[in-house]
Nucleic acid binder design. Structure first.
Lengths: 340, 340
DNA sequence: GGCTTGTGAGAAAGCGATTTCAAAGCGATG
DNA sequence: CATCGCTTTGAAATCGCTTTCTCACAAGCC
């Protein structure tokens, strides 16, 4: 009925293969998995039968029998965010090296969707890598209490029973603040990211700590896209800020465009700083001062942690990967024309 | 052993729930799936037990017993390509409406990886949506011969036994050519996309058909990223072209940046045209003349086709979605300063 | 040459759900 | 009051694969 066409049944099982090859199903399994020595002639017959019948083992049956799926699940809030592809590629690489495939799901920035999807992934993957989780601490704690291998990426929650790797967003923003303070800026505005984002709150925490550098900060609600940045940028003028920090590069670039339209010269009248160092060098107007983290390393590390969690069952301390400051053309001392 | 911590066993099965609730496993199943009427008191006891034990049905066992996974798989060549997220969101929406979840995989533009992943997806999903396949026709034919629900998106192969939806790339490029011809251009260059891309060959086919408009075309190898466009743009000068067409918007934007650096004024000295209409309005220097397709509709349509293929088993003719031309600031008549 | 080892293959027992089938409970009817 | 029919529940079969367990056979040893 299902998977059939013209009444021809197409569900080929391991027993069918065994029958065709004149051996038992167990032998077929052994040949295909190489779990035991099998007579070469038999093995050849099995392989022939497999080819002939177009046999593919049923993943559900394998999963059930083996007690594992050979799969890890990765959940990200938004696939349109250029931050993630690089992370995902690294994760895939590590997973493939360990003989597992990766399935990706997207929660669309919605904590309740995120929660459901994590549950799904836990039921159908050996391990779950949860990126930039927007869930509240309680839900997150409930999930980690399930004792299912789970690693957090870019979200650190103290006291939660799951390993975690994250870019050091706090440190990154501190680097930015230090740079701005050194240039002589005093009043800074921040275009804030998604509300539920821990990464955003870390940036804000750093901005507040930067009062020690003599910076005073105005936080403006914004978002994570270039459109948000473009729209929110109009509010910056009212703050009297000489420098603008942002949730990420896209926001910064959107703001940059708006500033140009408004006739505000960057960096002469306003310094603008991004975050993440997204690869848009060859697209943007201005090369952006920003901070970066090796996203590949981030993904690798998370995947390795997950792997060891699944096999050894060990979980260590949260790991912070340091960010690096890249000073480019979008920052300068306040009120000074950089080009002389 | 697995999934355990401190020796506490955590694998809760449906029988455990039944035992705790004082009913049989069958009853638990009936309560949870609502497949039959069950005494309200029993149902309540079952729900309590489920909550108490934190029971989650094992996906593999369900898949095996039900003969389906409740999942569709989507395979894309590159998650970093901003073309796909919008498609994926639409697919997810439709799938969710039909009670299925979506798992995404990435083939990294590698046809052999793509082949393996499709096979994996076929073994663990009810249906597969294959986007912008880079596989050759023979491998593709072999896969579709598997009689497993499969829909192609942005790849039409005549004579292949799988439904397909695609943007009308040929028509899109024809629109561009018509626009350029109308402006008075004669010599056009094209920055070509990935070799194995059918979408690219469709664009080229249109460029060749556009000889009828009096256009002569030089094809330059390039790729699909802004970096490629930036690099390949240097070769355009040698072709004597007055207009540059590209595989996609990112390439066009990269080229635009390079042209600015080279002192080539756009559109006065060179018209530049993108493809896809990626949402980077607020990031790029110049608003780009380009063609667009409703990517959401594309994803929806593909998902609906897959759904009906899985349920009804019917597959229709390939569907082409028309593209639309957006004339913006990056094109002008040759050798004329647009601003007067 | 008889008996212990060792080795390769089949039979059978799970894995954890769903679903068929059979039995039991219960009210209603003749 | 016994029987019929309907509903609700439990027992058991099933899904397709892996993995023990068991056995048959061949080789090696004294």
């Amino acid at each position: 009925m299902r998977n059939s066409r013209e009444g021809r049944q197409v569900r080929v099982t391991i027993s069918d293969v065994g029958e065709a090859a004149g051996v038992s199903a167990s032998t077929v399994s052994r040949v295909l998995n190489g779990t035991a020595k099998v007579d070469a002639a038999l093995a050849a017959r099995v392989h022939d039968a497999v080819r002939q019948l177009g046999y593919r083992p049923n993943a559900a049956a394998q999963g059930l029998a083996r007690g594992e799926w050979g799969t890890i699940g990765v959940l990200v809030p938004d696939l349109a965010n250029p931050y993630f592809p690089e992370v995902l590629k690294a994760v895939s690489g590590v997973a493939r090296a360990h003989g597992r495939r990766v399935m990706v799901m997207e929660s669309d920035e919605d904590p309740s969707v995120e929660h459901d999807l994590v549950e799904d992934l836990m039921r159908s993957c050996d391990g779950v890598l949860l990126c930039s989780s927007r869930m509240n601490r309680a839900d997150l704690a409930a999930l980690t209490a399930r004792h299912h291998p789970l690693v957090l990426l870019d979200r650190i929650v103290p006291g939660i029973a799951a390993p975690a790797v994250s870019a050091d967003f706090f440190g990154g923003m501190m680097l930015i603040c230090g740079h701005l303070a050194q240039l002589g800026h005093r009043r800074v505005a921040y275009l804030s990211g998604p509300e539920a984002s821990w990464a955003n709150s870390e940036r804000i925490r750093a901005l507040e700590a930067a009062k020690a550098f003599g910076l005073s900060v105005t936080i403006l609600p914004c978002g994570s896209t270039s459109r948000c940045g473009y729209e929110a940028a109009a509010d910056v003028a009212g703050t009297g800020a000489t420098a603008l920090t942002t949730y990420n590069d896209l926001v910064a670039l959107g703001a940059l465009t708006r500033m140009r339209e408004l006739g505000v010269r960057v960096p002469e009248e306003l310094s603008v700083v991004g975050f993440d160092d997204i690869e848009l060098d060859h697209v943007a107007h201005t090369s952006l001062t920003t901070v970066s983290v090796p996203r590949g390393r981030l993904g690798e590390q998370a995947a390795e942690m997950l792997e060891s969690l699944m096999t050894v069952g060990h979980d260590g301390e949260p790991v912070y990967l340091p960010m690096e400051l890249h000073v480019r053309d979008s920052t300068a001392p306040p009120g000074v024309d950089k080009r002389g």
